[in-house]
Amino acid sequence: MANTQTLRMVVNGEQVELEITPSDTLAMVLRERLGLTGTKIGCEEGECGACTVLVDGLPVNSCLYPAVKAQDRSIRTVEGLSKNGELHPLQRSFVEHGAVQCGYCTPGILLSAVALLEQNPHPTDDEIRRALSGNLCRCTGYLKIIEAIQAVAASQ
């Protein structure tokens, strides 16, 4: 029987503490222990970016990220983007621009975009493409996504 360890981290602004097995990934803990299924499991190899969450503000692939590494860190998932029932400006813009089709990549892309706009409030299209280069979308062709992000950048 594997050991357990106590993991303390802040998830979407709330302190959580739970017992995990050392080999749990952050994606698994978020989805299966905390019920935050907005974080998607895609390739499980760090290629698709569907599992992207922010760790201390930086996008990481949570499927490759040992949950133990999240100790004392702050995690943001797609569930943490809306405030008081209001969609995050990026979420609203994605809806308005038709930047969501099947939606499976959307949580990861939103988080990559949140991190980008926090570091670079007025990115060029190329900077957006580079920021999203670890997020695959097989539906939209990305153009609507870039437009949606540019619309938010223009409004802030």
Binding site: G46, P59, N61, A115
Partner: peptide, 9 residues
């Protein structure tokens, strides 16, 4: 290297 997510880690 990799992607932004990989380079952050």
């Amino acid at each position: 290297v990799g992607s932004p997510q990989i380079r952050n880690v």
